[in-house]
Design a protein around this nucleic acid. Sequence first.
DNA 1: GTTAGTGCAAACTGTTTGCAAGTAT
DNA 2: ATACTTGCAAACAGTTTGCACTAAC
Lengths: 150, 150
Amino acid sequence: MTIPTRGEPGAMPTTPVQERSTRQRRIIRSVFDDAERPLSIEEVLDAATRGRHTVSLSTVYRFVRALVEDGSLSVFELPGLGAFYELSGKAHHHHFSCLHCKRVYELNDCISVDKLALPTDFQAVSHDLTVAGVCAACNVGGTSRAQRAP
Amino acid sequence: MTIPTRGEPGAMPTTPVQERSTRQRRIIRSVFDDAERPLSIEEVLDAATRGRHTVSLSTVYRFVRALVEDGSLSVFELPGLGAFYELSGKAHHHHFSCLHCKRVYELNDCISVDKLALPTDFQAVSHDLTVAGVCAACNVGGTSRAQRAP
DNA sequence: GTTAGTGCAAACTGTTTGCAAGTAT
DNA sequence: ATACTTGCAAACAGTTTGCACTAAC
């Protein structure tokens, strides 16, 4: 007899792994569903624990990692700012990082990097572009006008 | 009386800071002079301690940081690979990161990012582009031919 | 009732720092 | 002789993990 398992076909009959729906997981998922920009772990934790909810830091780390591993989320890292997470499945895009509030935004345009001259024998697999600057919120009314705190 | 100091003009008379030439510093400087690509702290340490020399990790961190602060070196960070350092003063360029050996190379071309559509009210200050792939050394003779270890 | 998920604290990794001993000037 | 540098070990920040307890199913 063959019991279907997720993972490799023909694997030994095992109890199928079941993913449970807990309060914490529902919250974390909804944080990403509601987010309109990539989030750092800190931002996820902040959003998740807004209200009277309580979610531990390790749970955020663990579940976000699980979501990355199952493909629901994509990660990228920014210099000095650590990792950011966003829902997968979007068109290829790049990011804008605000030097003032440290928030990160999506850029819809993908520059064509194919044009970049690569040394012979170098094989490009992917490219990553980040523009840094001042975001709309922080840019209001001049150069030194502080908006929402980071 | 006014004793010239480095730093802000008109500063209080202080003993001018003198930078000493030690064996360790000479070695670290020469590592960068000889390097033909950006180096991580580990790579600097490895190169510096090749031969019978001895340089401690903290000295590498400390002196490399000093060189960055005085402008001799530039830093940039790559996702998952940490910080890389290279001599300053080169034309604007980007980097290529080998997925196999983890080494980083300079790319001479600078893509024009001016063309990238930025949302109104976003001010671009700088941009950073990294291409990832397989470098010439690791690309020799096919896809899975291992070259020098990372 | 089982077993996956959570929270806490301890472990880890990469980097920085305090301080006593070493060394360039 | 002076005070900048070094090396070691302890301190740190960010992330991961072991384990007993809690809660889905």
